[in-house]
């Protein structure tokens, strides 16, 4: 999935993500919660970033902004050279559809739909023909090693398999960035390992991956670890990522 036909629209020197003084303030009437208190962050193409920090430090808030699910109260967010912090709801939906792959802790699959249909969903809203859709969705399922589970519904899959279907859905539109908010939070350690193996492989193939985690062992696989506290980045370090012990293929 690294063969992206549309290359960066603006200056190729510009990072994939460029955030300046980003704030998200929840007005709760009497108190104002500063979930993000002025974040600056540049993320280059093909980085593998782990975002860490205590509960309530603003990790998910940032991910929602990065994923264009929400808009900031203040600040700017340029995604592949385009300012997206001031788009309206429908424009954001289109950006999510074209540029973002989002993996949630709780999978968020349509319970009554098959794996194939779940993976097809972004392409349906992109207006793709059903033949092309099916081809791309099966390819994405193949990448996560679940092409033989295309006709299964979520309740016929294990937790790890569900998350892999969700990853296939996130990949199917060839996104500029792959965002994952605690993707292994609901999985046991063996399954977590399988899912992480998948992220590593995607990164190796050129994908930009941003992943929130609480678990230090998970963050060891990233090249860069960004740590949050009270809505601010308090640490931003590069590291040599841990390599996988085996070259096991998931499935």
């Amino acid at each position: 999935m690294n063969d992206r036909p549309s290359e960066p629209r603006a200056d190729t020197k510009e990072p994939v993500i460029k955030i300046r003084d980003l704030k998200k303030i929840y007005d709760m009437g009497r108190v104002k919660v500063e979930a993000l208190a002025g974040v600056n962050l540049d993320i280059e193409q093909n980085e593998f970033i782990a975002i860490m920090g205590p509960s309530g430090s603003g990790k998910s808030t940032l991910m929602n902004l990065l994923g264009c699910l929400d808009t900031p109260t203040e600040g700017t967010y340029r995604l592949r050279g385009t300012e997206v912090s001031n788009l309206d709801d429908n424009e954001l939906a289109t950006v999510r559809n074209r540029e973002i792959g989002f993996v949630f802790q709780t999978f968020n699959l349509l319970p009554r739909a098959t794996s194939l249909h779940n993976v097809e969903l972004p392409l349906i809203y992109a207006g793709m023909s059903s033949r092309e859709r099916k081809k791309k969705a099966l390819h994405a399922l193949d990448i996560v090693g679940l092409d033989d589970r295309a006709d299964h519904r979520p309740n016929e899959l294990s937790g790890g398999q569900r998350q892999r279907v969700a990853i296939a859905r996130a990949l199917v539109n060839d996104p500029a960035i792959l965002l994952a908010d605690e993707p292994t939070g609901n999985l046991d350690s063996k399954t977590s390992y399988e899912v992480m193996e998948l992220f590593i492989r995607l990164h190796d193939e050129g994908q930009t991956v941003i992943l929130v985690t609480h678990e230090p062992d998970i963050s060891l696989y990233a090249h860069r670890v960004v740590t949050f506290l009270d809505g601010l980045i308090v640490k931003d370090e590069l590291q040599t990522p841990k390599r996988l012990e085996t070259e096991a293929v998931p499935g």
């Binding site: 939906a93 968020n108 349509l110 969903l121 992109a126």
Partner: peptide, 16 residues
């Protein structure tokens, strides 16, 4: 509601 959330998250617009 959750289904709508999922559809919107993957890019469904208001009209869709």
């Amino acid at each position: 509601t959750r289904e709508v959330g999922i559809r919107k998250a993957v890019g469904a617009t208001y009209q869709q």
